[in-house]
Amino acid sequence: MTNTAHLLQLSSIGKQFGGLSALSDVSLHIQHREIYGLIGPNGAGKTTLFNVITGLYQPSAGEFQFDGKSYQTCKPHVLAKAGIARTFQNIRLFANLTALENVMIGRHVRTRAGVFGALLHDRTTRNEERAITERARELLYYVGIEKPARTLAKHLSYGEQRRLEIARALATDPLLLALDEPAAGMNATETASLKTLLQTIRNSGITVLLIEHDVKLIMGLCDRVAVLDYGKKIAEGVPEEVRKDPAVIAAYLGAEPEAHTSGFAPLASLSPLAGEDPGERVVDNV
């Protein structure tokens, strides 16, 4: 794979749910080693697009290429093997398994032992098991989970659970790490350390795709950002430009671009975002 090609290339992706068009004609590309942000108001289709990329949904139209290969319809486990790992908006850990086991399960796709290996427990299997455990422990340390590795996933704190999801995803040796609102519900300190973690991950050579409501985080972290609204991509570019894009401001604030410079707060309360997380309203106020 040459580095010049895009890691992920979406071409005219569409997704219909019955008569509802959740995504239409979305095209974008993600380059190697960048942090790519996906933002948009609630119901814009971010998570749908995310589920298409990770194989949970099959696109109704369009196709995507990942790492030089084209995927029309694909099962999640095939894409995981190809190198896309994800986390979930509402944490989906294996709650009754230990933190360590959660990460070890992430190694599944990069290891081979089958039933006979399990039953015979031969040298190859033993070595592989040892390597799996070792790598899992490293990853727990890497994402900063300090509780004992044998703690059940459900007994970890909220922030740790989010980190554990990232560790589990990293265990699959991904090329693209797709994070669905990793900072949701985190306090400022937790968000700041998440930001550091994501930068470390990117510096280690992994491309990151990020859906986030926390615009501050997106703007400070992402190399490029795409904005979705009503299932369409309305803007794409570096955060600075996107933030000034009239269409984006209109989508977020439901107002004409010049209006927001004067009376920001009243307009926000009229916007479709009223009652939303306050972090969202500050789209241009960061």
Partner: peptide
């Protein structure tokens, strides 16, 4: 074993299990 862990992953959350490459 690796197989046993994959089974338990399916038991716990099938969607997450398949997203992890199982």
């Amino acid at each position: 074993s690796r197989i046993g862990r994959a089974w338990m992953a399916i038991r716990e959350d099938e969607v997450a299990a398949s997203a992890m490459g199982i």
